[in-house]
Amino acid sequence: MTIPIEYYLILSAFMFVVGVTGVLTRRNAIIVFMSVELMLNSANLTLVSFSSYMGNSVGQLFVFFVMTVAAAEAAVGLAIIIALFRNKLTVNIDEINILKW
């Protein structure tokens, strides 16, 4: 534990920013979804590093729950993408605009 915690935090911030860039620039719904997973993982890294540097396991419990929610989100989200693909035959999020006015 000789590494300063700032290194972990900066890596986590970098991964979060890359995930945001992916969500904003990509047009494939599945890749947008994977970028969201990347952002969840960067938040997990922050939680684990603080938990470990403070010697307290509550942060790791939070990561456990985040993983549960991410699994549920992936299952439901991919089912939604399959249902959308069945209706519109595309995963391009520019063409999926039935909720736009």
Binding site: M1, T2, I5, E6, L9, I10, A13, F14, F16, V17, V20, F50, S51, S52, Y53, M54, G55, N56, S57, Q60
Partner: peptide
Amino acid sequence: LVFIQLAFMIFISRPTPAANPAVAASVNAG
């Protein structure tokens, strides 16, 4: 811009006075 902001927050303002690594406690916590 957001990344620069976050890096500034992390490195310059040093928000982590509590982070003095206690190795035994952290091994136990994990």
